[in-house]
């Protein structure tokens, strides 16, 4: 059986499949191995509100709870698992240790491609320009 317009169809198919695969091929060539972002840790404070692992995975849930506890329940003191107390406040507690949004928050958020809207209202320690 003879194929009508065989050659152009095959060529077209090859171009199509090639275009489809191009991102993967190019990606393989240019992508470097992923390097974890380097965060600037607070100079004179070693322990965060909770453990490093907890903060890394769950800081957003913690902030979510903190907001409701402070605003709605009027309870603004948080006791962590070790029994230490913290004032519930992003600007006045978190960012008093993490004194730079750019060197801390943004590092991972940029890498992970997320843009939380905290800073639409909250004022970063660097101030606004």
């Amino acid at each position: 059986m003879k194929m009508h317009y065989g050659a152009p169809i095959i060529v077209g198919l090859v171009i199509f499949v090639g275009a489809l695969c191009a991102p993967f091929v190019v990606g393989m060539a240019v992508t470097k191995t992923y390097k974890q972002p380097e965060l600037k840790m607070p100079a004179n404070e070693k322990e965060c509100v909770e453990s490093k692992e907890f903060m890394r995975e769950k800081h957003m849930q913690l902030l979510n709870d903190w907001r409701d506890w402070a605003l709605r329940d009027g309870k603004r003191i948080y006791t962590n698992h070790a029994g230490k107390e913290f004032t519930i406040s992003l600007q006045n507690t978190c960012m008093k240790c993490h004194i730079s949004k750019a060197d801390f928050c943004d590092k991972c958020h940029t890498d992970a491609g997320v843009s939380p809207y905290c800073w639409d209202c909250h004022i970063q320690p660097e101030g606004l320009k």
């Binding site: 709870d65 506890w69 329940d73 009027g74 309870k75 603004r76 003191i77 948080y78 006791t79 962590n80 004032t87 519930i88």
Partner: peptide, 12 residues
């Protein structure tokens, strides 16, 4: 058991 309480400095 939310691990929270009011600030004792606060007025209510």
């Amino acid at each position: 058991s939310a691990p929270i309480k009011e600030d004792p400095k606060g007025i209510t």
